[in-house]
């Protein structure tokens, strides 16, 4: 079965795309770009319209019953044995790392484990499974990257975004100080502990500003929104963009959107 991702050398024909709620409401272009990128590589994309949220906000807040209810509804969406691609390491991490914990004592545990096994973060999928080759068509630009903590510590795929950007010869990659440090988003943390979150994001924004990059790129819209909005509020011109949109715009797009 070349549909299953277990054989990494073979390209799957089809994948599920799990868009995430932040992208749904705030950054749909990122989701559309990701779908374009996957399709350009010859992969058929299935987007279950019944998808909502992975359940992470409740899980991280201690509301396990609610997280379970929501997660269970997502389990029902992925019946075919094909990869699930998620354009967010945070949501991918929820499915891959935390569903097995969440469903640990549940009757549908095996289903959760199966889905966890099939879940990939987008940049991980593009590099490790699709071995994507990119040709840069864009103008010279300097970008700073913020890899999310989920990408770094949970999914362990933080370097994939660098691998992708390295393929773009007109893109200069600037490294912010303390790049591995959390930006202070943390989902509900930003609202529950606004003072600490503010201190953290301001430090992060300063480090990014200091790189003189024109754009901030990342694989998680939560962090991007946090840092990007902070940069904007401080009056900086650095724009923020999800890696999928950045890649698509420079290598094939721009497609019509907004």
């Amino acid at each position: 079965m070349n549909l299953t991702p277990t054989n990494a050398s073979s390209k799957p024909d089809s994948v599920y795309f799990y868009g995430t709620c932040l992208i749904d409401l705030l950054y749909p272009q990122a989701g559309v770009s990701a779908v374009h990128l996957l399709k350009r590589e010859g992969v058929n994309v299935i987007y279950p319209q019944a998808q909502t949220c992975c359940g992470q906000p409740a899980w991280n807040s201690g509301y396990r019953d609610e997280a379970l209810t929501v997660a269970r509804a997502q389990l029902a969406l992925f019946s075919k044995p094909i990869p699930i691609v998620v354009p967010s390491a945070s949501c991918a991490g929820m499915i891959k790392v935390h569903y097995p914990e969440l469903f640990n004592a549940q009757p549908d545990k095996s289903k959760a484990l199966d889905i966890a096994e099939r879940t990939y973060e987008l940049t991980e999928f593009l590099t490790d499974i699709l071995n994507i080759n990119l040709t840069d068509l864009g103008a010279p630009v300097t970008v700073a990257v913020h890899s999310s903590c989920s990408a770094r510590h949970e999914m362990k795929v933080a370097d994939r975004i660098d691998i992708l950007l390295d393929q773009l010869h007109n893109v200069t990659h600037a490294e912010p100080a303390n790049k591995e440090e959390c930006c202070g988003f943390g989902g509900t943390f930003a609202i529950k502990q606004p003072e600490i979150s503010a201190a953290m994001v301001l430090e992060k924004a300063k480090a990014i500003e200091y790189t003189n990059a024109q754009r901030l790129i990342g694989q998680d819209c939560g962090c991007l929104m946090n840092i990007g909005c902070a940069l904007e509020k401080q009056g900086h011109t650095i724009t923020h963009q999800h890696i999928a949109k950045f890649l698509w715009d420079r290598t094939g797009g721009p497609h019509r959107d907004n």
Binding site: C149, S150, R152, H153, C182, G186, F189, K192, Q193, S197
Partner: peptide
């Protein structure tokens, strides 16, 4: 509540 669960 004083954690972003960043994992560092």
């Amino acid at each position: 509540q004083v954690s972003t669960l960043c994992g560092a």
